[in-house]
Every structure is written in C-alpha cells, then in structure tokens.
Write a protein that binds this DNA or RNA. Sequence first.
DNA 1: GATGAATGAGTCTTCATTCAT
DNA 2: AATGAATGAAGACTCATTCAT
Lengths: 208, 208, 208, 208
Amino acid sequence: MASEKREIPPTAWQAKREASYEALVRSAMFRFYEKGYAATRVEDIVAGTGYTSGAFYFHFKNKSDCFWHVVDYRQRRRRGWNAFWEGLDSSQMSLEDIVRYAQAGLTPDEGLSGWTLVMSEHFQQHRDDPGVAERFARLCEGWIRAQTAFVSELQHRGWVNPSRDPEILAMQLLSFIEGLAVHGVVFSLDAEAVRHAQVDGAVRLLSD
Amino acid sequence: MASEKREIPPTAWQAKREASYEALVRSAMFRFYEKGYAATRVEDIVAGTGYTSGAFYFHFKNKSDCFWHVVDYRQRRRRGWNAFWEGLDSSQMSLEDIVRYAQAGLTPDEGLSGWTLVMSEHFQQHRDDPGVAERFARLCEGWIRAQTAFVSELQHRGWVNPSRDPEILAMQLLSFIEGLAVHGVVFSLDAEAVRHAQVDGAVRLLSD
Amino acid sequence: MASEKREIPPTAWQAKREASYEALVRSAMFRFYEKGYAATRVEDIVAGTGYTSGAFYFHFKNKSDCFWHVVDYRQRRRRGWNAFWEGLDSSQMSLEDIVRYAQAGLTPDEGLSGWTLVMSEHFQQHRDDPGVAERFARLCEGWIRAQTAFVSELQHRGWVNPSRDPEILAMQLLSFIEGLAVHGVVFSLDAEAVRHAQVDGAVRLLSD
Amino acid sequence: MASEKREIPPTAWQAKREASYEALVRSAMFRFYEKGYAATRVEDIVAGTGYTSGAFYFHFKNKSDCFWHVVDYRQRRRRGWNAFWEGLDSSQMSLEDIVRYAQAGLTPDEGLSGWTLVMSEHFQQHRDDPGVAERFARLCEGWIRAQTAFVSELQHRGWVNPSRDPEILAMQLLSFIEGLAVHGVVFSLDAEAVRHAQVDGAVRLLSD
DNA sequence: GATGAATGAGTCTTCATTCAT
DNA sequence: AATGAATGAAGACTCATTCAT
C-alpha cells in the first residue's frame, strides 16, 4: 500500500536532524554542568540554540532521557587510550610526567571537570526508577575498564609495581581525581592548585 | 481551647521545642541523603516525625535553611580529633592501623558516607545565591583545618614525612575518601571493597 | 513521641474542608456536564468557587480522580426507591401515571439529564487504564440493581407481567431513558418532547 | 529531484489521492471508536496507514474536519432502506423476525455499535463552535427520516398501528437501540445479551 | 508550638498544526 | 502528494510557602 514511502529519508533531513540534536545535547551538557540537573529547565537548554521546547521533545522523551543522551555523547567523544600511547616516547619520562600528560585524558573533555556532580545529582533524583542503578553501574564499569587498561599499560612498561591489582588502582585513581575536582568546584578552590594536587596524589597512589 | 497550654512550665516548653527540632533535622538529614536534596519534599521530611509542615516552618525559614541546619547539626556531632589521640597507644601501630582506626572519624557519622553528594547538589542549585559559595568555602576550611591537624599530628609522631605540606595532604585525603565514597554510592560498589580501597589509598597518599 | 497530636482534628477544619470539597465537586459536575470532561480545564472547575487549582489538587489526586468523586457524589445524593413508594397511593394510578411520577427518580438529579455522556467520554479516554472497566461495570450494576427493585415492585403490585425478567427490563428501561436523553442533548431536541417520548416508550417497554 | 512525479498520469494521481484519503478516513474511524475522539492523536490515526501527519493535513483541514469526513463516510456507506425491503417476503414473518432482520441496518456498519459515543464526545468538545449544533441536528434529521421511512413501511404493511406518529416512534427506536449499545460498551455487557434486549425492546416499542 | 487547608508561581509535557522541501 | 522536523500555545500537576486558628 505505502510501499516505497519511507525509503527515501533525504539526507538533507538527516543532517538537519543531527544538527539540532547535537545543538541540544551540547547545550544540555553545559547547562547541566553550570546550574545542576534539577535547576536546569528545559527552556534553559533550548534558549541559546535557536530551537524551542518542542524540538527538545522531538529528540528526547523527557529531561531525564536528555541527560542520558548527554552521557552517551560524552562517552562517544572521549578519546581512547590507544591514541594516548602512540607517539609517546616514555623512555625519557618520569611517572609524574606521564600522569601529568595523561591528566587531560583522565579528566573529562571540554573542561567540564567534576561532571560527576551532575551525574550524582541525577542519580539521587532517580534512585527508585528501575534500572537506573544498573545503568550507572554499567557506565562506571566502562570507565574503570578504560582506566584499568591505562594502569596495566603502566605496569607493563615498568612504571607501576605489577603485583598490584590494576582494577582497584584504577578505581582509586578515578575517585581521587574526580573527588578533588568536585571539591574544587564546591569549595571554590584554585584550579591550578587542584590540578597540582591531582598529579601529586595520583603519583603517590601509583607508587609503592 | 488553648486551656492546658499555659500549664506547661517554660522548661518543658523548651524541651518540646528541642525535641521537635532535632526530630526534624535528623529526618531531613536522612531524607536528603536517601533521595537527594531536590527530590526531598518538605512533606517527606515531616512524614515520619509525627509533625506537619507547619512545624517545619516554625523551625526553619525554608528548605534551604533546613539544609544548613543539618550541616551544622552534623558539624556539632563530629567527634573532635583531640578525643581521637587520647587513649591511643600509637607506639605499637603501623600507619595503616591508625588510618583504619581513624576512618570512622574521617568519614561522616551515622553511616552517611558520601554525604558530600547532598552538599554538592545543594551547592549546584544555589550557585548564584550570594554568599553560598563563601559559606561552602568556610565549611570546607573547617574540615581541612581539622584534617590538617590530624596530618600534622601524624607528622609530629613520625608517621608522615614532616616536609610535606599538611594542608595539601589534608585536602587530598579528604577528596580521596569522599570521592571513593561517592563512587561507591553512585555506582553501587561493594561497601567493604570501598572501605578497603580507602584505607589502602590513604596510606599511600600519606607515604612518600 | 508525637502521641496525641493528630487526635484533635478541630471540627472547624473538617467543616472547612468539607465545604471546599463540596464546592469543587459540584462545580466539576456542572462544568463536566456543560463542556464535556476533556474540554473542562481544572481552571474552569475552580473558577467560580473562590478557590484555586491548588485547592483542587489538595482534594483530588488528578482530574480523573475528581471525576470519580463527582460520580460518588451523585450516587450518594440519589434518592432511594424506598422513599418513592412511601406515600404513594398507587391504587388510583395508571402505569403511565407511575412512570411519569418516577421519571424524576429515573433520570439523574439536578436536571443533568444525559450525564451518561460525560461518563462515556471519560470512559473512552481511560479505556486502557487498568480497573476502569470494572469500576464502570460495578457502577452500572448498582443502577441496574436499583432499577430492578423498581421493576420488581411494579410486578408485585400488578402493573407488570411477573413472568418477565426484571433485570433485563431494568436494563432496557435505563438504556432507553438515557438514550433518549443523550439524543436530546446532542441533537438539540425539544426537552418536553423528549420527556414525553420517554414516558410513552417506557410504558410500552413495561407492557406486554 | 521531482523528476518522476510528472510521469504519473493524472488518473493514477487521483487514484493515489483517493487511496490515501480512504485509508486515513477509515483509520480515523476505528481509532476514534477505540480510544474516543479526544484521546486519539493525529499520530495515532496516521500510524498504521503508512502515511504521515503531513498527508493527514493534506486531506483534512484539521482533526475536527477529519471527524466530519468520517461521519460522511459512514453516511455514504449506510445501506439504504430501499434495498432492505426488496427481496423480503414479509408475509411469512413476525414483527420480531423483521426487526431482527433489520437490526444489521439499524445498527451502524462494521461492528462499530455505539458509535454515537464518539459523536457525542465530539459534540461536547465543540459545543460553542458556531454551526456545530445545527450540523448535528441535520445529521440526526437524516437518520430520523430514514428510520421514519422504515416505520412507515411497517405501518403500511400492517405490522404497526398506523395511528401512531412514525417520527416519534423512529426517534424512540433509534435512541433505544443506541442507548443499549452505548451501555453495552461502557459497562462491558455481553454483546449477545445486548442484541437480544435490543430486538425484544424494539418489538415492544413498535407494539401497542 | 503546631496545625493543615490553601496558595500560586513554576515546570514539564503534549499535541494539533505549519512549512520548507 | 507527501514528508517530518519544528513550532508554540495550552494544560496538568508539583510543591515550597503562608496564614488563620
């Protein structure tokens, strides 16, 4: 009856759709980060994009759904660790050098350090929604896995004692870095000092 | 109608007031911790206490005010570090022993580990309120000061290299402990594993 | 702790509550009837009562809940059939006389004839809500039961052939009366003509 | 881009147009019936047809317009009463036989018994739109006229007392049949029982 | 000190409808 | 003839807060 109808989704539309989608996701990311998840209204997200709330609900089921799209978006953009090791002559570097160098990778992109705050806030507010806990857990797993790979590599290359459990170390590193970032945000600490304390502490956590 | 009210002696009055106050503060503390600050309604706080929202607004100017009362309440109940060192024969203990022993003091009371989450959420939602940032900063200072005293004491007693800046170390410790606690909550990690990682990491942060 | 607190619900409050409740229920009833269920906004209901939408949501969980409260309210106010037979000297009356006399009881009170319309509209819009169908069925049962009692009484008193199934007759009567009322509303028929056709038809349905 | 569009011969064009029109009208009819007018979204109508909302607004000015198209569609498809009497040897039949036989014609086609519900719902929601009342009245007139013709024919053929007003009788019949149908839908009554009660009652209404 | 009915501003969300393609 | 992204007005509902008692 309506056989060939849906077949030609003109790429023009697809492009349009993707453009508005990305604009909204990115706006949401920044607004969430600036004001917190709860305090960000859909109107706030939409405001600077040139779209309206209708467009928002065209792309997302609701505000919470939008949050998860942001999470995925960030995930997708996170530069892999593989790229990190390539083109790195580690023979001349101290552990501290490497950690400092890796920091840009350890902390989230786009300078949204302490984004965990947003995540935890969303988590709090949807604690009893079914499946949320698992979703967060799975997300964490991914991070730990990536971080574990980094630690393992450090062990392989002789920077870290190979007898230590890389997974636990990964968790400790992540928590420490993020913990400091969050403290920095909440307590208005000097950014440079925080960065320094992160590197210093990370090195110690990695050392015996 | 209000006949028997006059009969209550002033002291009983005050006692009554304090009783309801504490009941509400404590209920708020637990609700905030369980559901997050934003998701906790005044009704939720009031619910299990036997009081009504009217009582709430007798004691607190508003929800945010209540939050700060909780913070103060927690502050007041935090056992001082002085008590910690008394009756502790540290001569026989390793650094790890001490840290493990101190953990109950390092982490917030009543098993509300990761309460920073609540604080940061409240912070996010009142970012532009004037004075909030300072208030948080001052609060943090208090913690750092206490923690710094602890670290200094460790240096005095020879557990920690005296040349390190105790304040930075304090900040690192706090962030690390809280960071792990938060991760544990958000990502549903095993409580025992978290505790273990906390002690282990803390020792490393304190070591050279 | 809060032992005797809830014990004295000052009747003043109860009265206040009941007053606002009834005002809202009645307003809802009339608005629903005038504009239909879907087209009636909560604001419309609240408008003439002197209350605000907040009061509405104090009394009702939501608009649909309010609808059911209206249904119950109508149910409660429906004069029983017992009162009908008392003080009625049926010996001198024809069947038509009785039916005409009963019409005020057969049709809903307050001149809201054809209120079934509202019910069916609400029904349509909540068809997939669980429990709605049963609730309506139970409601209908009650009506049929009452109507059946009326028919049985007519049989006892010799007005209607006792061999006919009173329950089926009751259903036919109800449907006929309501069906005509609805047609009258939707097709703007003359009220008097409708009333006449109702009595005439009802008598025929009751006759052999 | 629009290259092959010109190649379609005008007749094919028209056929295409009619196909999509009918698909949409029929879908609307069924959706309205299943979920009610208000609860049916344009998307719902469009869903199973293979078209999109754009097509909908090509054929109909708006949702209400679509409703009237459905009404017309149903009107057009209603088998005339002329066809009914042809090829019916009524000499051997009782009144009940005829009514039963006519029921398929009395009740709406396609098993959408109780479609009056939808009509009345639409009516409620457009009560103050000018012209709606008249339009409904005219519609009803048509039905009554058809039904009146049927009744008159019954009188001619001796089944019904010729002294009774055929128009009133027609209205009573229609209301009764539809009233029962509606009750059946809203109160989940057994379809067979309803049908039986319809025939039985109709015969009584037609009898003296 | 405490009650609880009532307020009303604030938000999310829906959906009929438009329009460039 | 039809698409589907986007609009934006409308409405339901929440909840911190007030106030007469």
